[in-house]
């Protein structure tokens, strides 16, 4: 069982149909019907991922780097199962937990405690499972004295701490992190990094998307460099980051 990869991309292609007609709203569609229909017929899909094959082993932590629009978030969306591939198959094994953006899945008028339950259930736990972990989550967040106040009284740092605390207590098999590592103060960041290390020893598979090369180098076993919807290079962190820098910086200097 454990020899099976946690995540497997088999010749995955993902295309997006950019529909200007739709983006302009109903009014626009009706008022300019002939032009819009012609535009829809002539549309060319945008290819976000092209024939990508990739295996991520159980317990491996992989970072995905690349320029904006390289297909990094599409990759995460396909793993999470919120996007469907246009061709190919993505196979995942185990419970997947995405780390949400700041404040997502929370409600400002509910207390911290109520929000933990809401967020935990939204992320895939049953009520019983969340309640069993409630004390541990509150303890980890370090917000015990604020937890019965409404969330709107929290600072953004505190909100982020609460969200992160819920996410790391979901006992995921696969953790998906999209640019969200630097949350809270230094002390909390240390706590998070320690938790990440524990995840690694617990054989939790992690996929990071990040532009922060320093943390990429620190948390990952392998780094994948994406460019234009293709995998440009995959390998040990130092090597790939070096090549990526060498690729990016001349263009920065030229601009």
């Amino acid at each position: 069982m454990s020899s099976d990869p946690a995540i497997q991309f088999r010749h995955v292609t993902k295309e997006y149909h950019v529909e200007n007609a739709v983006l302009g709203g109903l009014k626009n569609l009706v008022l300019h019907l002939p032009t819009q229909i012609r535009a829809m017929r002539a549309r060319k899909p945008f290819c976000a991922l092209q024939d990508l094959s990739l295996e991520i082993a159980q317990g491996e932590s992989l970072s995905v780097i690349g320029r904006n629009g390289a297909g990094k978030s599409t990759l995460l969306g396909l793993i999470a199962g919120v996007l469907r591939p246009s061709a190919g198959t993505v196979v995942t094994r185990g419970r997947i937990c995405p780390l949400l953006e700041l404040g997502a899945g929370f409600h400002a008028d509910l207390t911290g405690r109520e929000n933990i339950v809401l967020n935990g259930i939204l992320l895939g736990l049953t009520r019983r499972e969340v309640l069993a972990r409630l004390d541990e989550i509150i303890d980890f967040s370090g917000l015990a004295q604020f937890v019965d106040r409404p969330l709107r009284t929290y600072s953004s740092g505190m909100t982020a701490r609460l969200g992160f605390s819920v996410a790391v207590h979901l006992s995921p098999n696969i953790l998906l992190v999209d640019e969200a590592l630097a949350v809270g103060d230094l002390e909390f960041q240390q706590k998070c990094l320690a938790r990440m290390q524990q995840f690694r020893s617990d054989a939790v598979t992690m996929v990071f998307v990040s532009h922060d090369m320093e943390s990429v180098a620190r948390v990952s076993d392998r780094v994948a460099w994406m460019d234009g919807g293709r995998l440009r290079e995959i390998g040990p962190p130092q090597q790939v980051i070096e090549h990526y820098h060498a690729f990016v910086h001349p263009t920065v200097a030229a601009a």
């Binding site: 469907r84 246009s86 198959t89 993505v90």
Partner: peptide, 12 residues
């Protein structure tokens, strides 16, 4: 046993 949770994400 969450590990046995196998999901295949295929084209619609």
């Amino acid at each position: 046993d969450a590990c046995s949770q196998l999901i295949e994400n295929t084209p619609p």
